[in-house]
Design a protein around this nucleic acid. Structure first.
Lengths: 146, 146
DNA sequence: TTCTTTCGTTTACGGATGTAAACTCAGTTT
DNA sequence: AAACTGAGTTTACATCCGTAAACGAAAGAA
């Protein structure tokens, strides 16, 4: 391929727009603006800017429809979520990720099916799980560790 | 209390610094700079800036020690991790969080103990888990949904 | 005591982000 | 055809962030 997909980054505010479009599968700006004005104190101009940036970033596609455009997602919601979560976790000490996830799972509202699925995934990992995951906050060759 | 702790935000680069200090419990700038220069292509000046910003933000405390300072964390590592993760998740569609977590847990390296602990947490939730978690991407009163 | 090293501080600067007004057209209304 | 309206584009601007050089003061060396 020719284009180098350098991982699109979506900012916090832009996420709100993407969620609308992901949920509706496609939407014109009128719809996006109306819906977002109900959730935030954003002026229509602000939302227009966000839409524009997402199009420029390649996160949204446009299809001409008479006077306006119809916007559709160019990136997958679940993939975007997974990537964002993994990135966040990779920023943290490997040794403490498990504990943090435990806290998160404990607080988060999850459906029965999700919980079962998660247990399943974990049960699968159990046999091959290493005794411990080392702290990766200091350079490899550093004698100190936590 | 008088001080309003408006949740300190730590940027990506600043996380690297915090991880060093969290791991060592306390460190002088010499140490922090030496360690980070091994992990990144950062000039000492860059690291100094990051340390300075963290002090100003109230994430690091300083104790005069002769000519220099000793830096210690003012915020808890685990709490910072938990908060960051939860914030990230709160930004995403509630309906798809479970799936995303499943993907993450599947890919992430976790210790045997962590996996067991996570299963435990989930098992605890199972009885009270709701049948389903609704999509929260559109306004409450919106007739459409995903 | 003067020179040098080194810490912490100040200044710098481009890009991303949140927030939004102003502007330009192309259809729509009268 | 002239006026209007609404969609997308351009411009704006303060703040944060990544990245780093420059500077001032204090401690150590000569």
């Amino acid at each position: 391929m020719a284009t180098t997909e350098l991982a699109i980054t979506i900012s916090d505010a832009e996420w709100r727009v993407m969620r609308i479009v992901w949920t509706l599968k496609e939407a014109d700006s009128r719809t996006i603006i109306d819906l977002l004005e109900q959730q935030h104190d954003w002026k229509p101009a602000t939302i227009k800017t966000l839409i524009g940036r997402l199009v420029k970033k390649g996160a949204l596609a446009t299809t001409k429809n008479g006077r306006q455009f119809i916007y559709t997602p160019l990136i997958d919601e679940q993939s975007a979520m997974d990537t964002a979560l993994i990135s966040e976790l990779n920023q943290m000490c490997a040794m403490h990720r498990g504990t943090s996830l435990a806290h998160v799972l404990d607080q988060l509202e999850l459906s029965h099916d999700d919980v079962e699925n998660l247990i399943d995934v974990l049960q699968q990992k159990l046999p091959t799980a290493p005794t411990m995951v080392a702290c990766d906050c200091l350079p490899e060759d550093c004698e100190r560790s936590c």
